[in-house]
Every structure is written in C-alpha cells, then in structure tokens.
C-alpha cells in the first residue's frame, strides 16, 4: 500500500487511522484507532449490522474475531517495519463472554517479532477491561524491507 511505502521512505510510522480508513472492510465494520503515544486501543463502534444473535442480542463471533485480527495487524504496523499489511498465517480465538450491543475495545501485544513471522496476542473488552469478551493469538507474516532481505 502506498500509504505504508511512503511512511517507510520518510522514516516514520504510517498514520494508523488513515491506514484503517483505506481498508474497505475496516470502514464497513466501523473500526477506529485511538493512539496515545505508544499505547494503541482500537474501537469497534456498535452497529446493528454487527449482530450475530438478535435474540440475546450479541455481536457476531466472526465480527469479534475480525476486530481482534485488525487490532493485531494495526499493532504490528506500529511496532514492526513491514512493507505491506501483515498477513495472518493462523489465528485462534477464545470466546469468553457474549459481546453486548455496545462499543467494543481491543489491545494487542506483539509477543515475538521474527524476521518474517510475528506472534501477536489481542484482547477485546466492553465495559470492564478486566472482563474480556474474547482473546486472540495468532501468527502474522510480515514483509521485511527490501534492503534488509539479503
């Protein structure tokens, strides 16, 4: 993506909200980035279209999973230099509580950064940070800078 390449060329981090806004699926879900220095929280604004169980009601498991995946990718874009968006290799999601029809927040930690693969953990919560609704861990493929490759 141009946005990423330009940022790398200028020796800075890409503007994460602009990056998210450039991805149609993230716009569709309604994901926002709240960055305070090195601390990053993603916000999933509630919308009726995110519901998976209208009876409870509860957020769709796929939406919660996708939100955690996006959170992991954004965290990687902040911490790691990758010429392209990190690609998920595998993800594993634990569903801990039902997602209520309110805004959801998430944070991710890069647990290991390799040259090509990174391990990331992410957690999503709603009212209380200490009561997460879902957790993800996954491996993501990054594209190291051309000059570092040889």
């Amino acid at each position: 993506m141009d946005l990423i390449k330009r940022a790398i060329a200028e020796g800075r981090k890409p503007e994460l909200q602009k990056l998210v806004d450039a991805i149609p699926y993230c716009r569709f879900l309604g994901i926002e980035v709240d960055r305070k220095g090195s601390e990053l929280t993603t916000v999933l604004r509630f919308d009726h279209e995110l519901i998976g169980n209208p009876v409870l009601p509860a957020l769709h498991g796929g939406v919660v999973g996708a939100f955690l995946e996006v959170t992991a990718v954004i965290q990687l874009m902040l911490e790691v230099v990758s010429e392209d968006l990190p690609k998920p290799v595998d993800i594993s999601i634990d569903y801990l509580r039902s997602g209520k029809p309110v805004d959801t927040y998430a944070r991710a930690i890069v647990t290991k950064q390799g040259r090509r693969v990174c391990n990331v953990r992410a957690e999503a919560w709603q009212d209380e940070h200490a009561r997460p609704i879902a957790a993800l861990h996954g491996h993501f493929l990054i594209k190291p800078q051309e000059t570092e490759r040889n």
């Binding site: 699926y25 998976g52 769709h60 796929g62 939406v63 999973g65 996708a66």
Partner: peptide, 13 residues
Amino acid sequence: VIHGGVITSLLDN
C-alpha cells in the same frame, strides 16, 4: 483480496 475477517465470519457461521 477479501479480508480474513470475512472468512472468520463465514466459517464461524
């Protein structure tokens, strides 16, 4: 390319 999250939703459902 379609986002991985769509595949998550599709597989979950």
